[in-house]
Design a protein around this nucleic acid. Structure first.
Length: 589
RNA sequence: GGCCCAAUAGCUCAACCGGAUAGAGCAGCUGCCUUCUAAGCAGCAGGUUUCAGGUUCGAGUCCUGAUUGGGUCACCA
């Protein structure tokens, strides 16, 4: 039994025996003591003041005295107002360190076996990935890792939006203006090449619209009447009808995009276990909509379009199939959801990592699935995250203010390289090793920067701050790891002997190490990597303070072994925590 | 306009179920490398937690209302 359970039990026992008061265990609130006070953990006694019929101070004194006499780990206590600060003895901390050193079970994932599917990324295939995708991917990937550590079997997935008018736009522009250009002949990454033709289409359309407007046509009408637009519509129909020429072009250009995306994902360090393609799930969604119609769950309008009535849920009615028989986003999402639960019948949760501008969309989706009678509808969850803003304002692709994912990664890695060279600590390292390190630091900085903020909150992306390696950053934590490893290298083998007297900074560090599992569980429950990022910062700070306050290698044998033990545990804890964020650690930097 | 979300130091972010004197980092100022990695540490300065009420022993946190900003209400995805 943990000492915390013991304390809770003793408090309940005390109240029962002396005041005939039965305490619900959740009423026991034991927090880490704030650093301006003496103590390790603080018991809040306010809830017991009333049944004890005394002042908060006296209640604290009485309980403190009782705990000190009955819980062997407690060395002393002090009471300030209604706060009872408990100090654990050195033996407790020494044994805690010893236990963690001898059994690394605390680094192992839990086991529950529940199957969870996490969706993230889900890009369009007509433009390259950008900053917004980075937050999405890092978040989704990290949540997958966190859930695995919490014991789940995780399937990482995405739905690739590979059909529709937008794809045809790139295809048409390439066909018309591309001169058979390929990634090989142009030297462009596949996704960049296709994105280029998407832009060209837009430019050509604008030109034509301008001409039509000049000849007296209304602008809105011109957009629909432009011949290039009509050609795109015609291409879409051909695609839906399985026209061979269109399909082969579609396959060719999609392959370019996928190979481009793969390079980007690879550098980002994210991966997927199973892919879903909209081109394969939209017809399933349509079938479900039509079945729902015959079952009387949906209704039709005069033009033959199919709708879902959501009045009872207080939501707007939702279109599922257009009058012309084509489907919309919602229909595809229904098809995809059903497909997934057919593929993984044992799935207990599916997590959609999608921006908060789609909060309403998912509310509607889950409601429709419920109305369709799927018992698993309540297992669906929208992991909603806020938009990434730039100092210049919102990212808008039409205005050229998007931050390209590849460019950004290149920038942060270069910044890491420049900073490292300035410091000149790596002169004996091969250039291959150096490049590996710069990659680790740059990408680590970027991930940490994006994951540090509570996902639910909208955040500001300052490019200058993102390449900074000082302060509350990924490289600061990585540096602390490298520092630990340097100490351990110099120390060589050591055997832990235990300690009888511990100093304040050791106590603080040990306490931070002890909180590891609790922090990871919180992060898993809240699907919140930022909790882990902030824990990493706390731990790194605690270690650096400890490092500057005491001498590790040149202290007496007992102190040396304890401090090396703390150093070893710090390194392992940082490594595991950063690992759950998808950030790697260097042995030196 | 209806609904949803946010607002904390000059800037970017913390603050677990309501708990002590609201914490970090950046930017500014002061110190600390002949000793284990100074990408670090110690310190100074910086706050009416947007505003007005309410509940409570106790409110940045919960409730009501307002202000400001954002999102959404598509036969776009």
């Amino acid at each position: 039994m943990s000492v915390f359970n013991t304390i809770a039990q003793k408090v309940a026992e005390y109240l029962h025996e002396n005041h005939a008061f039965e305490l619900e265990s959740q009423k026991i609130q034991l927090d880490a003591t704030r650093k301006e006070f003496v103590g390790d953990y603080t018991l809040i006694v306010f809830p017991f003041v009333k049944p004890m019929r005394t002042s908060p101070e006296k209640a604290g004194e009485a309980i403190g005295e009782y705990l000190k006499n009955t819980v062997s780990e407690i060395e002393s206590y002090n009471v300030i107002k209604g706060f009872l600060n408990l100090t654990f003895n050195s033996i407790y901390w020494s044994e805690l360190v010893e236990e963690k050193l001898s059994d690394s079970g605390w680094l192992e994932p839990r086991t529950s076996g529940d199957l969870v599917l996490v969706e993230y990324s889900s890009p369009n295939t007509n433009k390259p990935l950008h900053l917004g995708h980075l937050r999405n991917n890092f978040l989704g990937h990290s949540v997958s890792l966190i859930k695995e550590f919490a014991g789940n079997d995780v399937v990482k997935t995405q739905i690739i939006n590979d059909r529709g008018v937008h794809i045809c736009k790139s295809m048409l522009a390439w066909k018309r203006f591309g001169n058979e250009e390929t990634p090989e002949t142009s030297g462009l990454k596949g996704d960049k090449l296709v994105g280029k033709y998407y832009v060209i289409f837009d430019q050509e359309l604008k030109k034509e619209v301008a001409m039509l407007v000049a000849s007296g046509m209304d602008e809105e009408v011109a957009k629909k009447e432009a011949s290039i637009m009509k050609d795109v519509q015609e291409m879409l129909v051909k695609w839906e009808n399985g026209d061979e020429e269109v399909l082969s072009l579609w396959n060719k250009m999609n392959a370019w995009v996928y190979s481009g995306f793969d390079k980007t994902y690879n550098r980002m360090g994210v991966s997927f276990d199973k892919l879903y393609y909209e081109s394969k799930t939209y017809s399933k969604g349509k079938q479900i909509a039509l079945d729902g119609l015959t079952k009387g769950l949906f209704y039709t309008k005069d033009d033959g379009s199919v709708w879902c009535n959501l009045d009872s849920a207080g939501m707007d009615n939702k279109l599922l199939v257009r009058g012309d028989g084509t489907t919309v986003y919602m229909t595809q999402d229904i098809g995809t959801a059903v497909q997934r639960f057919e593929d993984f019948p044992k799935m207990t949760q599916v997590v959609y990592t999608v921006g908060d501008e789609q909060d309403y969309h998912f509310k509607v989706l889950f409601k429709i699935l419920e109305n369709l009678g799927y018992s698993w509808a309540h297992n669906c969850q929208h992991l909603s995250y806020g938009m990434v803003d730039l100092p210049s304002g919102k990212m808008k692709s039409r205005e050229g203010t998007v931050v390209d994912a590849d460019d950004l990664m290149e920038d942060v890695v270069r910044a890491a390289c420049e900073s490292s060279e300035e410091k000149g600590k790596l002169d004996d390292m091969s250039s291959e090793e150096q490049n590996k390190l710069f990659e680790m630091l740059g990408i680590g900085a970027l991930k940490f920067f994006l994951l540090r903020v509570d996902p639910k909150k909208r955040m500001l992306f300052d490019p200058e701050e993102s390449v900074s390696l000082n302060g509350d950053t990924g490289p600061f934590v990585q540096y602390t790891y490298a520092r630990c490893k340097a100490v351990l290298r110099k120390a060589g083998e050591f055997t832990f002997t235990g300690i009888t007297e511990i100093v304040e900074k050791e106590r603080l560090l040990a306490r931070t190490l002890a909180a590891f599992r609790l922090e990871m569980d919180d992060a898993a429950n809240g699907m919140n990597p930022s909790a882990i990022a902030n824990y990493c910062l706390d731990l790194a700070k605690a270690y650096n303070q400890f490092y500057q306050a005491v001498n590790i290698l040149n202290s007496n044998a007992e102190e040396r072994s304890f401090r090396l033990g703390l150093t070893h545990l710090t390194a392992e804890t940082i490594k595991k925590s950063l690992d759950l964020l998808g950030v790697q650690v260097p042995d030196r930097m």
